[in-house]
Design a protein around this nucleic acid. Structure first.
Lengths: 192, 192
DNA sequence: AAATCGACTTGATGTATGTTAAGTAAAATT
DNA sequence: AATTTTACTTAACATACATCAAGTCGATTT
């Protein structure tokens, strides 16, 4: 078995046998991404979804003023991708970049489609993954509409302490939807 | 066939045969919800997901200040629910209420779980549904972070003209994450 | 038919967060 | 080792949108 991490992750929401996993693994490839290097650039068609084995990455968009907006902040044992581009296999508007030197597993679109037919439990896995991702995002979006940045930052520290500790402030601020200056002021007020 | 609408909806993202559909239909029940009446209240366990056959509904949360925040605005041929409560079968924090007199089909949690085992194409359908819901929400959230309310309102008019025309301003404003007063001013500026 | 309620508007004023600008210190690059 | 870049901080000022308050008009209820 190449990746015990992935095997474990798949079996969180589905029942993937070692035989099924061998089939899945035969379709995977691995990529190393150096800190601050891009894994995906906007305009590209996202041919893969990525499972992070090591490191930390962010996905982000760039608006018409040139400001970056972090969409996902992801560490080991989590999935990242431009889902919109991936499912439509057309040009996307999301960039993915490593925040630390990272290692990711790549699963190609046509392979995944084929695996869905062959291994119904894999479709179960992704159904659950998207279900959970949707619920989390709905709650995050709701928090953005009903709470001030300070409360959302405290919630982030509480629910994802490893992220808050490990990821540079600029990306956390962007993920919270505020400027680094604002987050710096919030931190000053909280910790002094 | 009781609901051609639902049959058509399921076959948008999956291949549900008439035989399979008969099995699904045997698990459905129907409910009529009068304007301004609740279909689900926060604190309840959401035992069902709802498919809207007729009318319009909104789901919303209430924050600690007592302000309502619209989460979903839904008309015929769309799904609505408190997914978080539904999947965990524990108390939720979402309210669902009819904006117009409505008719909805109910699909219970344990029935859906059973149907997933029996009809893999139904799992395909929901995998795709959540995938699309996630992508849409990600784009909506991103717009909320990078665009002003006026631009988001124009986008809403463009992409969902029926919603903008049919749903009262107060709910549109809440969905946009602004007050009715602000949306009223935006409209004044746009249409005069 | 009267009374109430819901949907929407308008104006004066307040505030969370943005913008601009300037700086320090550590990390990365040469 | 020197230089550049990145991460972060602080301060003065600007702004999108909220809040509070008051009012109109039509729909709903009694």
């Amino acid at each position: 078995m190449i990746s015990a991490q992935l095997f474990h992750n798949l079996n969180k929401y589905a029942r993937i046998t070692t035989d099924d996993f061998a089939v899945i693994e035969s379709k995977l490839s691995k990529k190393f991404v150096k800190k601050r290097k891009a894994l995906l650039m906007e305009g590209d068609v996202s041919r893969y979804v990525y499972f992070v084995e090591k490191g930390a990455l962010r996905s982000y968009t760039v608006d018409k003023e040139g400001t970056e907006h972090v969409v996902q902040l992801v560490v080991e044992e989590h999935w990242i991708g431009d889902l919109c581009s991936f499912v439509s296999q057309s040009a996307g508007n999301i960039n993915i970049e490593a925040i630390e030197d990272s290692e990711v597993l790549l699963l190609a679109h046509h392979d995944l489609e084929m695996l869905y037919e062959q291994i119904p439990q894999l479709e179960r896995f992704f159904r659950q993954l998207f279900q959970r991702a949707y619920v989390s995002l709905q709650q995050w979006h709701n928090a953005a509409q009903s709470e001030h940045a300070e409360e959302r930052y405290q919630q982030l520290i509480k629910e994802h302490p490893h992220i808050a500790a490990r990821i540079p402030l600029i990306y956390i601020a962007s993920y919270l939807g505020i400027t680094p200056e604002s987050l710096s002021r919030i931190r000053k007020q909280l910790f002094s």
